[in-house]
Design a binder for these strands. Structure first.
Lengths: 198, 198
DNA sequence: AACAAGCGGAAGAACATCTTCCGGTTGTCG
DNA sequence: CGACAACCGGAAGATGTTCTTCCGCTTGTT
């Protein structure tokens, strides 16, 4: 079953480093960041990068898959910890973490273009979306959240809000994401007064 | 005083077309969109583009300047029409227009890098920011808006929210911007209950 | 110790975009 | 209307960037 023919220890370590470097650089500069820079950032040569990931598509796909797995795991554990409005708030705040929010923002256009051609990717996308929509629905059923926003929609919204601003240092971006998400959450809450809108 | 030696009629028309084409393409694809495509989209040859704008910097700068002028004009006229919370809401909604919001979002990183080296640009930036901050201050002084957001900050926030999603058609982007801005505005409003936050 | 697996990075292919230039066209003005 | 200066289009060469391969050397593994 395991098609992987067992990598040598150093090879496995390099693979991890490459994935981490790719995730970081893609977050900051988008999925088109030069392969050579990814290799450099991981502390290996380009040859090693190409040996492990035959082309950019494979690399980006693996980065995206890893991201989805993290997101899904968080959504599942949060689901147990708290549900309804409180659960959604916590989940949204997790999306402020750079490894989720900023990365998924950077990958959004790439994913939209490629996910349909990749079964693994489209599966993970669907699972993640389903988890997120479940959380939204719980909050809405509780009557705590406005109902003119769907899960997919909120996910896009979050991905805009957590998008990196390349002219600012990473720390400032993180801080800003967190603050902006707080405002968004306040805007999502259904207030007793005047729910109706035009 | 007028340094422009009076362009021929067709030349002037082409200049306008080029500016419009550049604004549109920059909005959709960023300030690095190929010069040739801009020319094509304007219905002229590359030669004409280079004759009117000797380099990309000049072109982008003029697009940005025009954008600021529009924004400033709107802010001024809104200032007369309504002030305080209502005025801010209207101004923010204007930022949902693609010619302002999506374009300024696409230009943000470029501007951050270049405005300091261009007196005209940094002047316009300052004026626009000042207008916007004035509107924010009025709303805050009224007690209608949360005070943990500055004008510059809100401007960055808006530019994230109105950012184009290239995988969606232009109309969907516009609709989304408007809706998201509505949520943001709700989040900005100071509610009577529980203003304090951790 | 022996060998298969892995590594680095130079080099040249492949590609994208910039920028110039000139033969031909078109507004403008006397 | 006619002449001329201004303007136009777009092919082509220059430039720069990124991809991808390949091979001599190194390092885990048994």
């Amino acid at each position: 079953m395991d098609t992987t023919p067992r990598l040598r220890a150093d090879a496995r370590r390099n693979r991890e480093r490459l994935l981490a470097a790719a995730a970081e650089l893609i977050t900051e500069r988008g999925p088109d960041v030069p392969m050579e820079e990814i290799a450099q950032h991981a502390g290996v040569g380009v040859g090693t990068l190409y040996r492990r990931f035959p082309d950019r598509h494979t690399l980006v796909r693996d980065v995206a898959a890893e991201m989805f797995r993290r997101g899904i795991a968080i959504a599942e554990s949060e689901e147990e910890a708290a549900s309804g409005w409180e659960g959604l708030v916590r989940l949204v705040h997790y999306c402020g973490e750079p490894e989720l929010g900023a990365l998924s923002a950077a990958l959004r256009p790439w994913l939209a273009e490629h996910r349909d051609r990749d079964p693994e990717l489209s599966g993970l996308t669907k699972t993640w979306l389903a988890r997120f929509e479940a959380a939204v629905r719980l909050a809405q059923d509780e009557g705590a959240m406005r109902t003119d926003v769907t899960g997919a929609d909120l996910l896009r919204f979050i991905s805009l809000v957590t998008c990196r601003m390349p002219e600012l240092p990473a720390a400032a971006n993180h801080e800003a994401s967190a603050r902006y998400l707080g405002i968004v959450i306040d805007g999502l809450r259904r207030r007793p007064l005047s729910e109706a809108r035009p």
